[in-house]
Design a protein around this nucleic acid. Sequence first.
DNA 1: GATGAATGAGCATTCATTCAT
DNA 2: AATGAATGAATGCTCATTCAT
Lengths: 212, 212, 212, 212
Amino acid sequence: MRNKYVINIHTNIKNKSLVKQRHQQIFEAAIKLFSKKGYHSTTLREISKESGITLGNLYDYLNTKEDILYIIQEKATKAVIETISKEKLENLDPVEQLKRLINSELDAMNRYQDLILIIYQESHAMGKKTLHSLLMNERKHVEQYEKVIRDGIKKGYFKVTNIRMMANMIKMLIDGWVIKRWDLKGKVTLEEMREGILDVIFNGILFGRVGG
Amino acid sequence: MRNKYVINIHTNIKNKSLVKQRHQQIFEAAIKLFSKKGYHSTTLREISKESGITLGNLYDYLNTKEDILYIIQEKATKAVIETISKEKLENLDPVEQLKRLINSELDAMNRYQDLILIIYQESHAMGKKTLHSLLMNERKHVEQYEKVIRDGIKKGYFKVTNIRMMANMIKMLIDGWVIKRWDLKGKVTLEEMREGILDVIFNGILFGRVGG
Amino acid sequence: MRNKYVINIHTNIKNKSLVKQRHQQIFEAAIKLFSKKGYHSTTLREISKESGITLGNLYDYLNTKEDILYIIQEKATKAVIETISKEKLENLDPVEQLKRLINSELDAMNRYQDLILIIYQESHAMGKKTLHSLLMNERKHVEQYEKVIRDGIKKGYFKVTNIRMMANMIKMLIDGWVIKRWDLKGKVTLEEMREGILDVIFNGILFGRVGG
Amino acid sequence: MRNKYVINIHTNIKNKSLVKQRHQQIFEAAIKLFSKKGYHSTTLREISKESGITLGNLYDYLNTKEDILYIIQEKATKAVIETISKEKLENLDPVEQLKRLINSELDAMNRYQDLILIIYQESHAMGKKTLHSLLMNERKHVEQYEKVIRDGIKKGYFKVTNIRMMANMIKMLIDGWVIKRWDLKGKVTLEEMREGILDVIFNGILFGRVGG
DNA sequence: GATGAATGAGCATTCATTCAT
DNA sequence: AATGAATGAATGCTCATTCAT
């Protein structure tokens, strides 16, 4: 895991920092356009114009249109993972740990919502390689929750039967903020969502419950 | 809302039951193909071949490719709403009501997962009209949860601050079964998922909790 | 060998005689353009314009640009084979038979010189299928010579060591009329060529030679 | 004809021996690639990589892709002409002279068959200039045969009506070894071909013939 | 002289849609 | 109502060529 930012798209360009820069340009143009029109309806020509990189030149940094999804996926998942990895969780009790994790992830989701949505919606346009990379990142991501949950169980804070499933459910609730905006758009603030999620996760909805 | 099965796609065909039949053919062909290759990668030629309707004839029942998404969306959401509407909930206490609702929806999700996924993934390919219809159906859907939750609160069973948000969160957990299959695929059964969802929703994960 | 004119290029067009007609149009446009500019430099757009078939429509009769070479190859080789097959050779002595064969082939070559040249020059652009078809036709072609030569040997007219090689050499001399026009262009008439070829083949150039 | 190795492709490079060396590199890379994939399917990028000359640098020694064909044509035809010119023919009787000529040319053909084939197949991709150069070389080439034939006639060995045509026919038979490999590939050795050609040329195929 | 990045016109091919019959 | 042929704009991608350094 030397340089986890090196995205392995074949290129003949020698100047690697230029490659990085151009990928960033492509990335920014793509999320802007994909968010608006979706992957399939966005033309390479549009990406060229938006990114300021000539059509032909684009292909010095790309082998195929699908590579753009790869770039987005890599950047997005890594950005999110990093955000939540930065949380300093040691010395906190598991409840607090989980709270912080959820909080920071919700923030990340909120910040990168366009990316997340693109990844969800265009996953079926991804090739094997991209999809696999996505799954790996996802796994790594969910594992962070699993670790905290496992810790919480061991210390007697949590009562969870299937850890992996629970981790996914938590993540699902958070992702919901981005994916299922339809019915909540404008009706609920991020703050309310945060409280709501924490409340269900910890306490459920049954009345009269007394936490331990 | 005269005949909720008359889908308002303009057609010159007089025989309305024929229209219905053809739309059903198109629907079946489309979900089969869309599930496999996605909306954009599926050709009208392929739909023609799969449905057994001639390419030219297809356009007697369709004005545009997007209409197919409309058909799918209508049929799918209505099928699901109907499934959960069939549940006889009267005379049950709210906890049981919510359980049944969740159970039947999870079953519906499981049965129609291809459709649900298509709708989620291709929503950005939908036109205004289709999207609006989708939102309306979604609202109607969520309302069923809201009603039960509201009832449960009134009767002292539930403790929920934002009903709409909670309804959405519950739905999100269920939809997750279909949408977020990535990391759970093959790791968790539908039955386990059912238990897991019910458990969080009602009790949360905190240990030592005493339900009311 | 039911219908040797059925060219097996996949098409969805039902009307087979229309397919035949369109292939003919494509064929005619192609040889005109290929002769002038070569295969690679000729655009499908140009073929569309020249043939009077819309660009999109072209692809109802073609799967790939290379198919055009296939069409040309099939038509050309078959036309030539047929021309020389039509020669009624029975009851003639082998010398006369060979003469007639050479004569009619030279005529065919002359008539179809554009085609022949295209096939020679673009053979390296042909895919496996087309190339194989070409070889098969070529073989069939050469066999006609071999038969006559073999007959002539048996009847004591000819003295030939390697029949296959000799057949090819004869064909080469004839093809030369088309392929190696460079240095002979305008210097030698078809008639002179005919005489010349017959003379070498039968007698060689040695003066006063006594065979045996 | 001052320096027949100075190929008049415009270049700004002052160091003429460097130009020569680079052209040689290009030449070698090109024949390797053209033989495999043909002229049109070979990229200048590929030639750059194969020759070890940077893409940009390539254009210091080339004005256009077609120039490569020019280089090949020049080198190839000159190499062949030189080979057969080296034959010391004086003091030999014409029959022996012709034999030697044919022998050495067949050897040359065999050695340079890739080049010859490229020239034949890509002649239609050649510009005016290149084509003219090719014709000139061809003429010079054929003349060598003409001289020997003419001599042989004068001395009473040969009986030939049209000398130029006969020279071309002989050359055609030899070129056939390279051009028409299709049907003979693997069936006939170079040695057999040599014998075969000499035999037809000199004696023809008629059994017991008595020349006039 | 050499390098490597950039340019942009051009190409084969696809596909939603139309239309005559 | 149905058929099947036709249309043509649009798209991903390539590649000869140029140019700043």
